[in-house]
Nucleic acid binder design. Structure first.
Lengths: 153, 153
DNA sequence: CAATATTACTTGTGAAATGCAAGTGATTTA
DNA sequence: TAAATCACTTGCATTTCACAAGTAATATTG
């Protein structure tokens, strides 16, 4: 039994960054991988090379479900597989993820030629629209490779 | 001696969400408070009601400095006071913070009338410009009250 | 159809981070 | 000069995390 989180304070009109769910090392990475790398299964997350521990991954997936950010469904054709998908609420994090990607690219750059970054900044809207279109179609082809390279447009 | 973080993996072209710095419960809250609540001192962070532990706050401020996101300077008029400010790099997180605020407001809403949310979404650019203008002027008047309420425009 | 493989986890253990209460040292104010 | 303020640090109990190993359910292979 995990026990309740001990009741957190909340201010009046709740325009607050809500980092109770997203304020950890992995949640946003999982969301990004669902959003732009086309990840769907537990195994993909584990072997993505980011190094999340298996028990922590399981915990995060559970929490993200409980928060209504992702849903899990067992694949009809193969009862072993569980496919994770973003909900509408989860997809609405796309602007956050995009801005984080842009910021990270601008400052965490280890030097590789990333002309793509300028394109991301200039075409925020189109990219967000594309991500959402693929989400609706359940199209899991990645916009971003495992290496981080962008496959867009 | 804290010891090195044990070397994290990095992919080739580094377009990655870099959550090594921001992937915790407090960093983005500190940045938001500097950005839109006009916080400047240690004490303000401590007594903001968010409940960050004092040792953790000290640690985060140190890490954010080391990452070049904030700077600390002792106040000339009062040698006890240390004022924290965002760097350019820190200010460039404004779009991230704004999108998080919008998302949080949309979904974490406990019900209060927040017509302001729509305004934030419609006037992203103006708000970002305003935040940056105040930052340049070192104007610490908050855009967002402690309660979360927006004082803008 | 039995043996093996795959997938999605859980469990156990030590290390690290966190939360809390109390204390410290450098100023500044009364 | 004593008290107050500010920005921290220290110690300790609790929680979370990382790593390795194991398990249960389904699927594939021979």
């Amino acid at each position: 039994m995990p026990g309740k989180p001990k009741s957190k304070r909340r201010s009046g009109c709740p325009v607050n960054i809500s980092l109770e769910m997203l304020g950890d090392r992995w949640s946003l990475l999982i969301i990004r991988d669902l959003m732009v790398r086309g990840f769907r299964t537990y195994k993909e997350f584990q072997s993505s090379g980011e190094g999340i521990a298996t028990n922590v991954l399981a915990g995060r997936l559970r929490k993200l479900q409980a928060a209504g950010i992702i849903v899990a469904e067992v694949e009809a054709a193969d009862g072993r597989r569980v496919n994770y998908r973003l909900t509408e609420k989860g997809m609405d994090l796309a602007p956050v993820v995009l801005e984080l990607l842009i910021w990270g690219a601008r400052y965490d750059d280890t030097g590789a030629s990333c002309a793509m970054i300028g394109k991301l900044e200039k075409h925020r809207k189109e990219l967000l629209a594309e991500v959402r279109r693929r989400w609706r179609k359940r199209d899991a082809t990645p916009l971003q490779a495992k290496s981080g390279e962008w496959l867009w447009p």
